[in-house]
Write a protein that binds this DNA or RNA. Structure first.
Lengths: 337, 337
DNA sequence: TAGGTAATATGAAGCGCTTCACTTCCCCCG
DNA sequence: CGGGGGAAGTGAAGCGCTTCATATTACCTA
């Protein structure tokens, strides 16, 4: 195969020094004439810069790493895809990694990613309370999505206003007459204060609703597991009449479980999600959920990160406001039989 | 921030030459004693190899690029995520790019990707008939997914046995009594022989079914567009009673359009997809579709590519067999009113 | 004991680009 | 007309790693 032309080759072609060509190609220095001749020669030779060499020399790779907790989760999968697309359109390369639901794998991946020397990191963390983040965030710009990295003050974040989101859901369910609900939350690694639980408890108190906590592995919605969860939740004498799921994947799992158990949704059980995944409206019945506007999240995260990389702007915490989307999967609580 | 230790630092620490350390760290050459001391020093210093430098020196980046036509398409989105995950678990980095449905962007991205000097490329091509592929495939291992790269004989491929898949669908619909159906296919760029159309025509003839072709932009299922398509398709006097969609995203779009137009599925219209996306069973009604086993596709593609990269094995064309999944969205053709 | 061989270790030359420090050269102004 | 300043161009030193060719050592065998 024909060896790729190098800077040197272009330099030879125009009879200039490599340094001159390097400057000329980037449009710094150089007379108009020189620049023109260099460009001409470069295209004639089919010269393409070698970004590896460039990265080695400059220490910047024009690559942004994207680490997500699990692409098995529908919302995160779409998020990852959108982030990659956005990064690409901003002229960066996207290096994507997926911890596949294992916090310990997250740590290992992080090490690998760091090795690649990306210019920045976008992360939907599995374990936002891990202390490892700060070590990284002090070395390169990091923006977390979904959760603030508790122990990494130097990282930016795009977080969801969960308090508001939970309030919307609880109000909605309370209005429909539900007095006991199941809350399906991901199992999380060592979490000092369990923010989701606390919020759930607070809202439950506020709305006079009793909550049964269901904890399930993050980012998967294994049908059998979900069915077990649901069966267990419904086994008591005073059963919950609704399930509030922290992810739409969980909610879909619940819909499936309900179907397996022969329950009517929302007649026997209301199901509410929390992300508004693509095609959530097409589920039978359409999934009631909370929409966070993925586009806005992506813009905020990528925008912030690139501003930090390119212009040294400080990282911030941006909060995204929720919007309740009511569809067919939530309805009035069944009257006790 | 503390400068990262380099090979040289480790060498100084153990009093050896950088070359020795390089060999020792990779486990080639070096006495057991040396290797042990080097490793000890490396971990003590927190040394991490700089893959950029390594890539520059060796010409291999341990990175595989993944280029997909559009991550807006559900199946491709999942595919991309799965490929990335698989690559990662094989110790490669995944550089993902998304042409977002624009063939011309595909070409531009390809150039960018090539600049990054990946060790290989996995591509779900938008335009499998583009001549650009061969230029690339002759330089590095390329494996196409979904379609063979027509003009790039040196590329490998994991293709779907569309002939068999179409036959399954047409038999299914014919058995249900459908005599006229709409086939929703993606608009494709200049395609010398339109394989999908040809297959559709062949199957139509075989089964005695009349087909109305509907062409829509690839990889999106814009609700308004889909509704227009459906309305147009149904406007004639002898309307189709089923829609066969080449992607599940299209199928979902059709379900949505049917809902918008107040049509009952499958009472008024059967809808059949072609990919078996996650949660396709949850749609209301569950989507009848053809399953290709995404796991098998991913394994075949990644396995083949890595074998080519690492062991210089020749690239092949692997064909994936279809499986019909019948759910609620397809039913008997309505009797003509 | 000498010669041969294999195992270890190393120096130095890259990989292709960037960038600092420096030389030339030209033009303009006093 | 001389000197100063700015623009254009250049040489060379890296960036951190790999790897070839060579040097050193030690061990075996004849």
């Amino acid at each position: 195969m024909p060896k790729r032309p190098t800077l040197q080759d272009v330099a030879d072609a125009v009879g200039l020094a490599p340094a001159t060509v390097s400057y000329a190609l980037r449009g710094e220095r150089g007379s108009d004439d020189t620049v023109a001749r260099v460009h001409a020669a470069a295209t004639a030779l089919g010269y393409q810069i070698n970004p590896i060499a460039s990265a080695l020399a400059t220490g910047r790779s024009r690559t942004v790493a994207v680490l997500c907790g699990s692409t098995r989760d529908l919302w995160q999968q779409s998020l990852t895809a959108d982030l990659a697309r956005q990064l690409l359109s901003e002229g960066r390369h996207a290096l994507v990694a997926d911890a596949d639901g294992h916090p310990e794998r997250e740590e290992a991946l992080l090490a690998k990613i760091r090795d690649q020397r990306p210019d920045g990191l976008l992360v939907a963390p599995l374990d936002p309370f891990a202390s490892q983040w700060e070590a990284l965030a002090s070395q390169l710009p990091v923006v977390a999505i979904g959760d603030r990295l508790a122990l990494a003050p130097s990282a930016g974040a795009v977080v969801f206003d969960n308090a508001a989101g939970f309030a919307l859901v609880f109000d909605h369910l309370a209005d429909l007459g539900h007095r006991r609900i199941a809350a399906v939350l991901p199992e999380r690694p060592s979490t000092p204060d369990r923010p989701a639980e606390r919020l759930v408890a607070r809202e439950a108190r506020r709305c006079g609703i009793v909550v049964d906590l269901v904890r399930t592995p993050p980012a998967t919605a294994d049908p059998a597991t979900m069915t077990d969860h649901l069966a267990a939740a419904l086994s008591g004498p005073d059963r919950p009449t609704a399930a509030f799921c922290l992810t739409d994947s969980f909610a879909f799992g619940m819909l499936r479980a309900a179907r397996t158990l022969g329950l009517d949704v929302p007649g026997d059980l209301s199901v509410v999600g929390f992300e508004d995944v693509e095609f959530a409206d097409l589920a039978g019945p359409g999934l009631s959920t909370v929409d966070w506007g993925r586009g806005a999240v992506v813009d905020a995260a990528v925008g912030q990160l690139l501003a930090a990389i390119d212009d040294d702007q400080p990282l911030r915490t941006v909060t995204i406001a929720p919007r309740l989307v009511v569809r067919g999967s939530s309805g009035p609580a069944p009257s006790p039989s």
